[in-house]
Design a protein around this nucleic acid. Structure first.
Lengths: 343, 343
DNA sequence: TTGAAAGCGATACCAA
DNA sequence: TTGGTATCGCTTTCAA
């Protein structure tokens, strides 16, 4: 009984359009458009009639059609390494928030550190005509973005710079942070300090080793290559290396870790080890203060990083024509115990 | 000199279209469409000519235009509570992966547990005509989705059921998990067991208290309301309650926590406390095994949860017409020490 | 204040 | 195997 009494209402699948709404409200389609988009110059009477018809038909504007004509999507894209990583998820959240403030939604995708997958994802986002793009670039060249950028796509790179192209970046002061952390260990009397970090293909790993080297050189300590690990942060390879290094004839008395994955792995290995080296890690992590001993870290600010990147992006979208910008974020040493012990 | 020699190439802002590509390649626009979309029935010669023209012009298909005509976007939406939360970010990652397998990208947004914001985000995603939607619903009614669902939007709810509507859900066995965890404490001789969890507006909190009550009742233990906390997982309120409860005349000898936020807060407070109750937490968390004592948990599987939800969604999108489904995921007790001590 | 008409850039359909 | 034409639902433009 209830069904067939409202013949104007589209049944089952399928959406009603502005045309349907206009017909039902007895106005022109352009008036519907004005009301939906909150534009002025519509009489209160018609405005009400339109909203009534919208409610009646369950109308929802098709943004694809709007974008096709107007040229902007009110969406931005984010491509990062792994959405499940705490650093990435903090980044995501802060970018989502800034996007939301600008009435914009966020596409996000994970590249799994694979340059080809990153490229696919980025280009898919470009095909969707997102207004702008924030990328934590995998290694490799980014020249594939040149045509997109020339066509008007706005890109900001976070945490790492892109390969082979000049573009806006928001980076952490990796070198300075590592210098601070290693210098801290030096000041506590250590001279045999190990470095444990990612493969050197990864920008942040390169920069942090550099900071490590600089700190040692500055202290007049020669770098011992047997104390430097650059490899995957998981698996037997790392554990074997740690065991060998800690159990060897001339073990390190302190360890500096290149990121929190390594810090955690190192903490686990130290637990099993007869010697207890001092430890400082790059990047803070949850419960670092609750471990025994509590872990001293050089903290980054992933929320701040995401905010800075998003704000730069929206400034560009608003038309900021200034030359390419390179923003650097400070790090902060947080002493908690593991780094404040002598050799 | 290099610039003006290729007059066909669009300069500066603006994209080339299939029309441009067709003109440059000397073929019809429909042939370009066939090549771009990998459709058959195009000669090798023309195919090559088209790809050459695509490269030359930097053409990238405008997906909005494609969607307008074809009706699907190859995108799905995800609305959750907080992208920075480890549970949510694991969910995000697993959904991203399944989506990617289906050639689909993911919109994600955080509701911050605010029903109005959730509604805005969901409707924005509907306006973008995502093919489907996965939602971790905030509390409140979800009747606002009825018109969308009737218009063909496919929705799957994860971790919590929606309010006031029947829809596909993928939930954790909250009651059973809590019963298991509390039962574990009972078996170690505890009779004064506290429950610490979220506000009762939140579905999982309600279910987990229920499991707690059932376990106690089953053991013939009366529930003491002074041992039950339902409130925010942060701030002085919780800490004061914990201090009072642990320092009172008749303190609990064991604590069951409703989620990992509470577990961590409780661990911190126990450290400062003179008494050391046994502890079991719902939801596993990183480094739980490295704390002292290591924390016994009832683990969920957020990756599995996301996978199940995404797979159900894509089954629906493929046309699965079966009635509304309610999937339940098992939990798993992981004894680590904190829960294996007597009163 | 209002609305008719002309696109936006692709795909669907059908004729060649 | 090819490609012309109508069309998707909206915004823009412009005349009334």
């Amino acid at each position: 009984m209830a069904g067939p009494t409202t013949p104007e209402r589209p049944r089952g699948r399928g959406r009603s359009t502005m045309k349907d709404v206009a017909a039902l409200a007895g106005v022109g389609i352009k008036t519907v458009s004005r009301v939906i988009n909150g534009e002025p110059n519509v009489s209160a009477v018609k405005r009400q009639a339109v909203w009534a018809a919208v409610a009646e038909t369950g109308f929802r504007r098709n943004d694809s059609a709007a974008q096709l004509r107007s040229g902007h999507t009110s969406s931005i894209g984010l491509v990062l390494e792994d959405a499940a990583d705490p650093f990435s998820s903090a980044l995501t959240r802060s970018i989502q928030d800034i996007a939301h403030q600008h009435g914009t939604v966020l596409f996000s995708a994970s590249s799994a550190e694979d340059p080809d997958k990153e490229r696919d994802l980025v280009l898919a986002l470009c095909a969707r005509r997102v207004d702008g793009l924030i990328v934590v670039p995998a290694s490799g060249s980014h020249t594939y973005l040149l045509p997109e950028i020339e066509a008007g796509m706005v890109c900001v790179f976070v945490d790492r710079p892109p390969g082979d192209i000049e573009a806006d970046t928001v980076l952490v002061d990796n070198v300075g942070g590592a210098r601070t952390g290693v210098g801290h260990l030096v000041r506590h009397g250590h001279r045999r300090i190990a470095f444990i970090g990612d493969r050197l293909e990864i920008f942040t790993a390169r920069e942090r080793v550099r900071g490590y080297r600089e700190a040692l050189t500055e202290a007049g300590i020669e770098v011992d290559p047997r104390l430097v690990y650059n490899g995957p942060p998981y698996g037997e390879e790392l554990r074997a290396w740690l065991r060998a290094m800690l159990g060897g004839a001339d073990p390190a008395t302190a360890v500096f870790c290149g990121n929190s994955r390594f810090t955690v792995e190192t903490v686990r290995e130290i637990r099993r080890s007869p010697v207890q080296p001092a430890l400082v890690g790059f990047d803070d992590f949850e419960l670092a203060d609750m471990l025994t001993p509590a872990v001293t870290v050089v903290a980054q600010d992933p929320f701040g990083l995401g905010q800075a990147a998003a704000q730069l992006l929206f400034r560009r979208l608003a038309g900021d024509p200034t030359p390419v910008q390179h923003v650097h974020m400070r790090t902060r040493l947080i002493p908690r115990g593991s780094g404040e012990v002598g050799p």
